[in-house]
């Protein structure tokens, strides 16, 4: 029993950056933009979140704390948005190819993260970029009196860092937004059929920009989770290491539904840390294959199952130009 509880908790913790990446990309694709730059935006969020916390600590010469953590969230969101803004400008306004632009954003973001990681590290006394102890503590798992002490349940539900709960809140908000509000309906229409949305009086360009940029910001928070939680507030070069790509695959696994993204990121989080909890006596490299293997299986399965309800928004990947004929 304990093994399962521990595995579950570890899966939640490992799956949260994937959850943010997936949610961000779902929002983006709902507007018809296929942004393959998730990895890049996560890198941008990872370094800027760390830099934001450090900036606060240096400015006031304190070991950080809650304001530094808040700044980390805000900075990572803004820089994720910046990446997505570049993408939106190129694809929506200039109508550049979405795939190429997304790949370029990934390369750009990776360089951006590693470059500024080195710069900040080089300027600090210790030689590497690391946040103070007080900031680090904010990103640690929380303890809620009484609730966290309930056997099993306390550990399963009330023992995570605040970003986990933020991620769940974003997923629920997004599900409600997409299915229950007029703005959400309009956004879905833009992603499905921009010409129809345009004819209905919806400002397609505005929706595409907003959805893509906010989606990018959410991806950025996912990147910040990696540098602040998984790497404990220390900059590690190439720390995102493919999680952005798994998030892109998870969007398909979740069939573009924020609530199913919760399940997907849990499964993939679990697969990525399985070797530490379920010893099968196989080489660890085989364990490392699991998430990617699952991705392949998911892609095949969703390719076979052709449902119109749970399919990719129809215009995804295609730029909209009203006067095209």
């Amino acid at each position: 029993m304990d093994v399962i509880v521990n595995l579950f908790c570890a899966a939640v913790l490992a799956g949260t950056p994937l959850l943010f990446g997936t949610l961000g990309e779902i929002l983006t694709e709902k507007s018809g933009n296929l942004n393959l730059g998730v990895e890049g935006m996560m890198f941008m969020g990872a370094i800027s979140g760390l830099a934001g916390a450090l900036f606060y600590e240096n400015l006031f010469s304190v070991p950080g704390g809650i304001p530094a953590a808040v700044l980390a969230v805000v900075f990572s969101f803004l820089f994720g948005m910046l990446g997505a803004l570049i993408y939106s400008f190129l694809t929506v306004t200039l109508r550049a190819n979405q795939n190429v632009t997304g790949l370029a954003l990934t390369i750009f973001g990776t360089g951006f993260g590693n470059f500024f990681g080195d710069v900040i590290g080089g300027r600090s006394a210790s030689g590497y970029a690391a946040v103070g102890a007080a900031t680090k503590a904010v990103f640690q798992n929380i303890r809620i009196p009484y609730l966290s002490d309930i056997p099993y349940l306390g550990k399963l539900l009330f023992s995570y860092n605040f970003l986990v709960y933020l991620g769940i809140a974003v997923a629920v908000t997004m599900a409600v937004f997409l299915n229950k509000t007029r703005t959400g309906l309009n956004l879905r229409a833009v992603g499905e059929d921009p010409a129809a949305a345009d004819a209905a009086g919806i400002n397609v360009t505005k929706y595409k920009y907003f959805a893509t940029c906010i989606g990018g910001g959410i991806c950025g928070i996912g990147g910040m989770y990696i540098s602040m939680v998984i790497c404990s507030g220390v900059w590690v070069n190439n720390c995102v290491s493919g999680m952005g790509w798994i998030a892109v695959a998870l969007v398909i696994f979740a069939t573009w539904s924020p609530s199913r993204a919760l399940l997907g990121s849990l499964v993939f989080g679990g697969l990525s840390i399985m070797r530490m909890y379920i010893p099968l006596g196989i080489p660890s490299q085989i364990y490392d294959i699991f998430p990617y293997l699952a991705t392949v299986i998911v892609l095949i399965a969703t390719g076979i199952r052709q449902s119109r309800e749970h399919a990719i928004p129809k215009s995804t990947g295609v730029n909209y130009f009203r006067e095209e004929r």
Partner: peptide, 8 residues
């Protein structure tokens, strides 16, 4: 060509 969104 109708300007309707299929899945709605």
């Amino acid at each position: 060509h109708f300007k309707l969104v299929d899945v709605l």
